[in-house]
């Protein structure tokens, strides 16, 4: 592995990790762990293959390990746990602060696919290879992730109904 090639990937790894993990600190810890693990697995790196995909795959596996160990106040969030208030009118313009909060509410597996498509411009086939999941699963996670995100954002943009006080 070439240090310069890794250095060149770092900004993108950090961007993806930030979006996936939420905070700057958690993201940089994740990138750091990814690099440490990558160096221990140098022997498995195939020259000429896609370095970014390889690093993202390592990051993904680390993340799975992390998520298997429940944090103290267990805030696991599965799809059933997301509550959707009533549908509101549609707005195409998305406020970034709302988006960040909405993204954090998605199950991690959906968030990962969504981000690999949106931030990394990866094809569905590349994502399937990186995450070691079947192509059909990429599609279903993407579809559910986008739809969940849309509904969370729509619910947020609903105007608060005014009460008439007599």
């Amino acid at each position: 592995m070439d240090s310069r090639a890794i250095l060149a990937e770092l900004p993108r790894l950090r961007r993806y990790a930030r979006a996936l993990a939420g905070s700057r600190e958690a993201a940089d810890d994740l990138v750091q762990d990814t690099l440490e693990r990558a160096w221990t697995r140098m022997a498995r790196w195939q020259p000429g293959s896609d370095l970014r995909s390889w690093l993202l795959a390592i990051m993904h596996n680390l993340r799975i390990d992390q998520l298997r160990q429940p944090a103290i106040p267990a805030t696991s969030l599965d799809e059933d746990g997301i509550e959707f208030p009533e549908r509101a009118t549609q707005t195409d313009r998305i406020e970034v602060t709302e988006l960040e909060a909405a993204l954090a509410r998605l199950p991690e597996e959906q968030r990962a696919v969504l981000l690999l498509v949106a931030l990394e411009d990866m094809s569905y086939a590349q994502i399937a290879a990186t995450l070691s999941i079947p192509p059909g699963t990429v599609m279903s996670r993407l579809a559910r992730g986008r739809e969940n995100l849309r509904r969370i954002l729509d619910a947020r943009s609903q105007p608060v109904p005014l009460k008439i006080v007599r």
Binding site: P11, R14, D92
Partner: peptide, 16 residues
């Protein structure tokens, strides 16, 4: 719009 907003939100990390 989601895709574009995700880029707007996280692209600044690239310049840090």
């Amino acid at each position: 719009a989601q895709k574009q907003a995700l880029r707007r939100l996280f692209d600044p990390v690239l310049d840090e």
